[in-house]
Design a protein around this nucleic acid. Sequence first.
DNA 1: CTGTTAGCGCCTTCAC
DNA 2: GTGAAGGCGCTAACAG
Lengths: 333, 333
Amino acid sequence: MSTINDVSKLAGVSKSTVSNVFNNTKYVSEEITDRVLKAAQELNYYPNKLATGLANKKTYMIGLFLENLGEFRSMHHQIIEGVAMKLNEFNYNVILYIDRDNEKIPKGAKLRIEPIDGAIILDPEIEDIRIKDFVSSGTPIVLVGKAPKSYENLSSLDVDNIEIAYSATKMLIKNGHEKIAFINSKPNLTITSDRLKGYIKALSENQIDFEPSYIYNCDNTIIKAKKLAGSILEKGEFSAIITESDVVALGVYEEAKSKGINIPGDISVFALGGMDYFLTPEVSRVVVDYKKLGEAAAKQITMIIDNNQQSSNLILNEYKIIKTGSVGQVSIR
Amino acid sequence: MSTINDVSKLAGVSKSTVSNVFNNTKYVSEEITDRVLKAAQELNYYPNKLATGLANKKTYMIGLFLENLGEFRSMHHQIIEGVAMKLNEFNYNVILYIDRDNEKIPKGAKLRIEPIDGAIILDPEIEDIRIKDFVSSGTPIVLVGKAPKSYENLSSLDVDNIEIAYSATKMLIKNGHEKIAFINSKPNLTITSDRLKGYIKALSENQIDFEPSYIYNCDNTIIKAKKLAGSILEKGEFSAIITESDVVALGVYEEAKSKGINIPGDISVFALGGMDYFLTPEVSRVVVDYKKLGEAAAKQITMIIDNNQQSSNLILNEYKIIKTGSVGQVSIR
DNA sequence: CTGTTAGCGCCTTCAC
DNA sequence: GTGAAGGCGCTAACAG
């Protein structure tokens, strides 16, 4: 590997001139610029990023922090993809930090020494040691997913879960459904309460009483979904079910099939959140473009770092509702 | 951020002593060690990774290179996860480089200047510019997925696709199937020919003639799968179908359903490669632990870097065959 | 406009 | 056993 020194010698100029040529930091005559460039090419020279980083106190690396959720969900992959590709576009590198469950950041409070200019943190937690550490060390942060109240002053990015649940519920109501069961995500997550808000909003806008017993909670596994679906379907009380994800919807499907219940004839199903393309049966659902979310996060962190933008809280509204045969119309009330 | 200088002053020792304490590189008396450690703690000092890297010519970062396949497959996610978590364990960081399709490494031949000690490259290509560049710059590489012949001397890691296809086919044969259609992956991929080898091997071991017209090719999209399945099912010639993935298997399922063909009554279905948990209907399939593959790759690259291990070609045999209701027994021949 | 000089923070001989 | 000095490769004043 050749260094700036080699180039300066070959070109017969000083190191700083070479540096200036490469960084456009000062005017250098065209002739000398040419000589430098030629020498650099001949020596196959490229600036050493570590040295540059050390001198500039800037690494051009962003940490992307996420938790290994056991089953790493599709949403995360899309975000990772969006973040990495966008950041690469901006000439930043992405360092991936995946925590183990319940083992939050093995390196303890040493995060601040990671060679990064900023951090993107997925699914921040109420008492997030990573955030604490970055805040105290002044590292710029972007939070993806609902930001805990205690960190409202930080930049964050999320999809509009209230709006999504609202739209979904409204769509069902438009189709004549009133008794709508809601298998929501795990309790005490912000996303869960947001979804509930959207659900309630749609009901009340349509003068339908909210019935708390219609609300269930479930995590994203097909086994639990089936079990829960069993008891819900047995009640025979509902004309539609909203589920927290397509995986849960599949559980409902399976359970319905084994009970001889027809979808959408007997009950309609709508999923909040889908993994898109490979589903069968195709359930009505809302699909969020998480890759775009990742891209937006990437853009946000670079804006903070490079244009020292103030912190901002973005709510992305990029989703679409896909209505398939899983939702039917209720004509007789 | 405090530096080694601050610590040395506070502790009343020289910089090199502090360095020695932190790196166990020379004996330092217990008393002084204590003083240094205490000073470091008080100042919240940690070595600057960039400076360390510059001085050591080692960055403790590994590049993980992959291509954005449009639909980023689950296999990739598992590998990423395995690589990142394992490498973190070894105190390495992972930098994620995701190429756009057909835009192989935008940075051209500048890869060598990435601040990495080694590279893990997923799905290497015959003429892989990334590999070329790393080889010429002496950067250690581990290839994940079938390594092109031209790079056989490099370390690589793959699952045993011959064996997998062989086992799958054998299982079907054991269940009485002889006319087995094979929807293989895209032609001219090594995995495709390996799978074919395994398929043929199982046939010939059981004295079943290989019939080339039983072989089809399909990429991993449900639409194409359905179309292809349509023509295969119409032939009515087969008692079983092996598909290249569970997505393709789903296409077969859907097509069968719309044609009133019963699985496994009329035809059995087996998928080579599965996304596991969220499938419905549950298709018989082979599941490969790609996370382990990623972990193994991580281990391999660190062995090369830290213990300058010779290059090695590992074939991982961690898969399991899951037989569900999608495969039936053929009794009458 | 160009070159000299002094760091960035750390590691590592090499004397003491 | 410990410390002083030089260097990793680059950038940023500051002179010239």
